[in-house]
Amino acid sequence: MSLTARPVDSLEALLSTRPDLLEPHRRYYARVFEDDVAPADLLELGRLCVATVHGCDAELAIRCPGAGVSDAQVAALPRWREADCYTDLQRAALALAEKMPFRHKEVTEEDVAPLREALGEPRTVGLFVALGLFDATCRLRLVFGVEPRSRILDRPAAVEEPLP
């Protein structure tokens, strides 16, 4: 017994019985990955960091090589603080992403300042919004038991593409 009557291996499949919700969700989720929201490498590292904290295999199975994140950087995510393969800006984004699932009350000015200085206010806000959505998406995938399916994509979501 599960929450859906059929196995699902994507958000597209999960939400397929509610096209009225799927379409606007796809538009919103796809917009998160535009460059004016936040740099692609920070979004990709943030998405995978949040998924690592949650242990969300369905999210981790989605990879976007074009985001500018190396395989070594992905592999090092569970111990990113000890790794030397990230830039200072990427480390600032990871510090924030790591707190988003369960330690959101612990975010301080020290977390935000380096992001604001490097990205400016609009893209810093964009990164926060994206990380909040990544946390929410992992929760949805986990509770509904979305099955992991390896996907190599240009980006994690696009308006014209099914939601992975």
């Binding site: 859906t4 019985t17 509610r18 959101h104 926060f128 909040g132 946390d135 929760r139 509770v143």
Partner: peptide, 29 residues
């Protein structure tokens, strides 16, 4: 599932997770 149809479950779940996403932004900022 005894109380909600699948379509309703998805709607309620989206309502909750979109709320979570918003609250995380409110709190962290």
């Amino acid at each position: 599932c005894e109380q909600f149809s699948e379509e309703e479950i998805l709607e309620l779940a989206l309502c909750v997770i979109l709320g979570i996403a918003t609250e995380k932004v409110l709190i962290t900022l």
